[in-house]
Nucleic acid binder design. Structure first.
Length: 826
RNA sequence: GCCCCGAUAGCCCAAUGGCAGAGGCAGAGGACUUAAAAUCCUCCCAGUGUGGGUUCGACCCCCACUCGGGGCACCA
């Protein structure tokens, strides 16, 4: 009695005990080490987006890494050599801001946080290969950032230009277009202003067509949403460039339009107020002072003001004229802020009848409107609504009577003949601005020499290391803190030896993350950024897992850098990530967790209360991975109860390891086989929640078999219990490992291999067929699964219930789907 | 304003043109226990947002709408 009681207590599912027990064992076995010499297993590269080291891991990390782990561990069980690395995206503003606030070196803050996160990840039992860790803030890593930048530079893909850039007055740094969300800084939500600066750019626009067209190969493998957002972002449009002569100017002006068919409907021209062209056209005209005043007003307006959609149109007539090339008409030239200086040529032909913006402007300024496409809609001048639809061309000379598409083709041909135009494409995408005026980033490896100009730092002098932050004022002041590090910034020119200065800006951290997936293959390789052979072995990434927040930025940049490296013959592939899974966010009570809302669920608390496995299981089981999870809807205590239930099964198995399953209870064996089959299928189609549900079913069936069926000694129960442990090892590694030991096996279960399914067990002996009359179910019968349609139909017609129903009725049709149903239509 | 995604039981979610319910949460009852916890068993609940259409048959395909979520928004 007492003995039994003590034994039971010792055998309770001790969730924290098993964590302490197995972690050191795994540290010794290292089940997830990839790329050992002579490993003959086929490869898989499973990649989780690497974290930014701000504090400890949170619920969002927990979900993402639990999902990535299911995939990685599944492929390991399936016999693949899986590369599943982790690292830290450890350069960036938060480190610097925290350092300023606390007066400590950003280095110290960063690496302390990394240590905390790393420890948490190990306890969380992520299947990472810890020998392949990298930190982008290590000189060893950013050396290759600098090398890569210089490669771009040599190929003419990195260049400097003056331009009005997005400027965050709070962070005191420039931002890429991608980092401006609705006119606000994506980090601190400060309204972004414009500032004229000389900055480094990468020529991503050279790759716009490939970035767009190659997405076709990702169709069905990446979330449709991400592909859509990227296509949108690149924003390719097709149209024509048309040349307009200008009165009193030798050079004509070229405009871009997507509707060259409406050329006869052009009634004025508009030039972007902040373009060089506008300034030149205004110079000396009687509108000059009015223009200058308007330009100043425009500059003062923030992006948010400019973005307001229902803003009234404004502009100035320059008192100059352009000539419409098709009919010789004189068109007034206006400047306005609704035309963008950096899209197309910064000048447009205005066709108010068929373009809403032009119509709004024409109505505001009292300019003429001429309809050239006859549609069913009301006259634009009267309704105030421009007609964009198709129709027959009118008032358009040789184009009259044609449809839109015909007219576009014809006018382009006519213009081309006279050298007055040609077909053209344009993109919304702009070049990637990578200079940042901050300290905690990769120094740009360029030296500015008064005689030689821009001089790349010679490769043998890389890395250009960041100076010690001690003594530097890191506070934002609009220019890089590095500029004040006198000993660092003043260097002799590598070419002529004269006194010169280093470029004091650092790189956008998105540059760091645009190639890190290559470096993981070769972290111990110090001669190059990556070992071409290792990259050939592992890349492209088979499965990428991460948040949809990076749908445009990080993924577009990574695709761009991959294509550039491909063109430099470093890579054989052109798309880095074969498949992409975007996990949803973890929320609380319907909204994102945030300190200000006070609804933050602390991961460490949940882990302490319920254990690692229960938290992981809850996150995986909560729903489809791409859906948001509301923590209020999930039950970690329920997950714990289930794990407990599963674990106890391992104690009820009384047969010995290695027993021949063939002699086991056939009914349970069939459930096990079907479950394993379904679990595989669900995991491979990212329906992890369904996979977990199938494991639960198998646990229920096994419990029943032990208690009221074949009993714990039946070999089928061992087979089922082992299947449960193996399936659970994808989600609840501690519980699974402990079960595995109790079942008499040696660690690590992660390497035990996925059970082979006896196909003969998958077929049922009989299946239920539904008998319908005119689509309504009347009866169900059991038939052999391989029954022929003719036999099934015969059985149906012999069925008593059916016979009664169809007695005296005319059978119009019989639909037989063997072995599922028979539908008799009367 | 334009585009995309979604809506199934009190709640989270399954069901890939063929029996609407796999799994879980919550709830109710019972067994075991001196008692509680744990455990085990049983039960409860919707006809798939609305209106049409295609089909022998629709949660599933098509059209229109309602609601919710997301993206884009002077890009000519």
């Amino acid at each position: 009695m007492w003995h039994g009681r003590i034994r039971l207590m010792h055998e309770a599912y001790d969730v924290h005990g098993i964590q302490e027990k197995w972690l050191p064992v795994w540290d010794q076995i290292e089940p997830f080490k990839s790329g050992r010499p002579g490993d003959a297993r086929p490869k898989k590269y499973v990649l989780d987006m690497f974290p930014y080291p701000s504090g400890d891991l949170h619920m969002g990390h927990a979900e993402a890494y639990a999902l990535g782990d299911v995939i990685a561990r599944y492929w390991v069980q399936k016999g693949f050599n899986v590369l599943h690395p982790i690292g830290w995206d450890s350069f960036g503003l938060p480190a610097e801001n925290a350092a300023i606030k606390r007066g400590i070196d950003p280095r110290v803050w960063t690496y302390e946080n990394i240590a905390v996160q790393k420890a948490s990840m190990r306890r969380y039992a992520c299947s990472f290969d810890w020998d392949r860790t990298l930190h982008t803030s290590d000189p060893e890593y950013y050396k290759w950032n600098q090398w890569l930048f210089l490669e771009f530079y040599e190929k003419g893909l990195a260049y400097r230009k003056d331009s009005a850039v997005n400027w965050c007055p709070n962070d005191q740094t420039v931002l890429a277009n991608e980092q401006v969300i609705g006119g606000l800084c994506e980090r601190c939500y400060t309204p972004v202003t414009k500032k004229k600066l000389n900055q480094w750019y990468l020529k991503i626009t050279d790759y716009a067509d490939r970035l767009l067209d190659d997405m076709n190969s990702l169709e069905g493998k990446w979330p449709e949403k991400v592909l859509m957002m990227q296509r949108n972002w690149i924003g390719r449009s097709h149209g024509a460039e048309v040349v307009f002569e200008i009165e009193g100017r030798a050079e004509p002006i070229t405009v871009y339009t997507t509707r060259p068919d409406t050329l006869y409907g052009a009634t004025f021209m508009v030039v972007a107020v902040d373009s060089a062209l506008a300034a030149e056209l205004a110079a000396g005209s009687k509108a000059e002072s009015a223009f200058k005043e308007y330009l100043e007003k425009t500059k003062a307006a923030s992006d948010i003001d400019r973005l307001a959609t229902d803003r009234p149109k404004s502009g100035i007539f320059l008192h100059r004229h352009a000539i419409n090339p098709v009919n010789g008409e004189k068109l007034q030239i206006w400047v306005s802020d609704y035309v963008l200086a950096d899209y197309g040529t910064g000048a447009i032909m205005a066709v108010p009848a068929h373009d809403q913006r032009d119509l709004d402007f024409a109505r505001a300024m009292g300019l003429p409107v001429r309809v050239v496409v006859k549609t069913e809609e009301e006259d634009a001048f009267v309704s105030g609504v421009a007609t964009a639809g198709d129709g027959a061309l009118i008032n358009s000379g040789s184009l009259n009577g044609l449809t839109k598409d015909e007219a576009i083709a014809k006018i382009i041909e006519e213009l081309a003949e006279k050298q007055l135009g040609k077909s053209a494409k344009n993109y919304r995408l702009r070049d990637w601005l990578i200079s940042r005026q901050r300290f905690w980033g990769t120094p740009i490896p360029i030296i500015h020499c008064p005689s030689c100009g821009e001089v790349p730092v010679p490769e043998d002098q890389l890395p250009v290391e960041l100076p010690d932050a001690t003594g530097l004022d890191l506070k934002p002041k609009g220019s890089s803190p590095l500029g004040a590090a006198d000993e660092w910034v003043n260097v002799p020119c590598p070419k002529c030896g004269e006194a010169a200065k280093r470029d004091a800006d650092t790189m956008d951290t998105f540059f760091d993350s645009s190639w890190y997936f290559l470096r993981y293959t070769s972290v111990q390789f110090h001669d190059r950024a990556f070992d071409i052979e290792a990259v050939k072995t592992w890349l492209p990434v088979d499965q990428y897992v991460g948040g949809v927040t990076h749908a445009i930025l990080h993924l577009l940049y990574s695709r761009f850098v991959t294509k550039v490296l491909h063109d430099m013959d470093y890579l054989e592939f052109e798309e880095p990530f074969t498949r992409l899974l975007n996990q949803g966010m973890v929320q609380m009570d319907g909204s994102a967790m945030s300190k200000s809302r006070g609804n933050v669920v602390r991961l460490s608390d949940e882990l302490a209360t319920h254990g690692v496995d229960a938290v992981r299981l809850s996150l995986v089981f909560a729903g489809p991975p791409e859906d948001d999870i509301d923590w209020a809807d999930v039950s970690p205590s329920g997950s714990f109860k289930f794990l407990n239930r599963a674990w106890r099964i391992s104690g009820d198995v009384t047969s010995q390891p290695g027993v021949d399953f063939k002699n086991g209870d056939i009914a349970l064996r069939k459930v096990t086989a079907k479950s394993l089959f379904d679990i595989s299928f669900a995991v491979e189609s990212f329906r992890f929640n369904v996979a977990v549900a199938r494991i639960m079913e198998l646990v229920n069936a096994t419990r029943k078999a032990i208690d009221t069926g074949c009993g714990g000694g039946d070999p089928a129960v061992r087979e089922a219990a082992e299947a449960i442990a193996l399936a659970l090892s994808l989600v609840a590694p501690y519980t699974a490992e402990d079960m595995w030991e109790r079942l008499g096996h040696k660690p690590a279960i992660a390497l035990a291999g996925w059970p082979t399914i006896d196909e003969s067990l998958l077929g049922a002996e009989s299946v239920t067929v539904v008998l319908q009359i005119s689509g309504k179910i009347k009866d169900r019968i059991e038939v052999p699964p391989n029954i022929s349609a003719a036999e099934l139909e015969k059985l149906a017609l012999e069925n008593d219930l059916i016979k009664r129903e169809i007695a005296g009725a005319q059978i119009k049709k019989i639909i037989t789907v063997a072995p599922k149903l028979v539908n008799i239509v009367i």
